[in-house]
């Protein structure tokens, strides 16, 4: 069984909301990313999404753009992030997801990417600029390798698109809370609740809410229809504050404590 599916089954039994954290790999460096992921696992985070840096991250707000830039300046590559996943997989059990814009994967070669991701133990792949229409073969081949391609749905998604997406989705569906880019916000917009309600009425696939999630209060307020939240920019803001590897790790750990 895929580790993501297993995790959501456990969350369901425990009647608990899953916490998925996002980290841009390689900011400030890959060793720091490794230390932070280990800390996250210790702090009870349910899954970690590791972002591969890209030169043109159009779906991201200023915080993750800046993190991506710093990581690229360190020379971090898709290969480097895959190695990190392999390394982490031998030490922790929580599912690991890889987030990358399409071009680094396309350039790496789709077949080779699936092989490497499978070898490293990647459980799910998130590609923000690869919509349903462009990913039929890719998602099928990933699935054969035991990896979920995580699909997005947004408040702007039509009923027709939601129907087509839930049909192909596996692992979970990444529900975007607002029509916009990533970045911490204060509340959960009404359109996010509407989206969760609509999608949950059409599928059993777990729904994770992302974009703008930064506080335990928001997690509580997502209601019964969302199975998990994804926290990204709020964490990358803490990484951005800098300091040594240990200091950053501690800072992120303290932040996550509130979510327990």
């Amino acid at each position: 069984m895929n580790a993501i599916d297993h995790k959501f089954a456990l969350l369901k039994t425990g009647q608990r909301k899953g916490i998925i954290t996002y980290l841009t790999a390689g900011d400030p460096d890959l060793q720091a990313t490794e230390a932070i992921v280990l800390e996250m696992a210790c702090r009870g985070v349910d899954m970690v999404e590791l972002g591969v840096p890209f030169s043109d991250p159009v779906a991201d707000g200023p915080v993750i753009q800046a993190a991506s830039k710093r990581s690229l300046e360190k020379g971090v590559t898709l290969d480097g992030v895959l190695k990190l996943v392999g390394n982490l997989k031998s030490r922790i059990e929580i599912p690991l997801l890889l987030m990358s814009y399409y071009n680094p994967i396309f350039c790496y070669g789709l077949t080779k990417f699936i092989e490497s991701a499978s070898c490293s133990g990647v459980d799910g792949v998130i590609v923000p600029d690869l919509p349903l229409e462009e990913s039929e073969t890719f998602s099928r081949d990933l699935k054969k390798a035991g990896i979920h391609l995580i699909y997005f749905l947004a408040p702007t998604s039509s009923d027709e698109r939601i129907k087509a997406t839930v049909k192909r989705a596996g692992g979970f569906i990444y529900c975007v809370s607002v029509a916009g880019v990533t970045g911490a916000r204060d509340d959960i917009p009404a359109q996010a609740h509407k989206l969760l309600k609509k999608v949950s009425s059409m599928t059993e696939v777990p729904l994770a809410l992302g974009f703008g999630i930064s506080s335990p209060e928001q997690v509580k307020s997502i209601g019964k229809r969302g199975s998990a939240v994804i926290i990204g920019s709020a964490i990358m803001k803490l990484v951005e504050q800098g300091g040594g590897r240990e200091e950053i790790t501690r800072r992120v750990g303290t932040f996550l404590e509130e979510f327990n």
Partner: peptide, 21 residues
């Protein structure tokens, strides 16, 4: 699907797909 031979397409976030439609 917006292809000229093997080039073109729509590689954008889901949020934009309805607007493009």
């Amino acid at each position: 699907n917006g292809y000229f031979g093997s080039f073109g397409g729509r590689f954008v976030p889901e949020t934009l797909m309805s607007a493009l439609q």
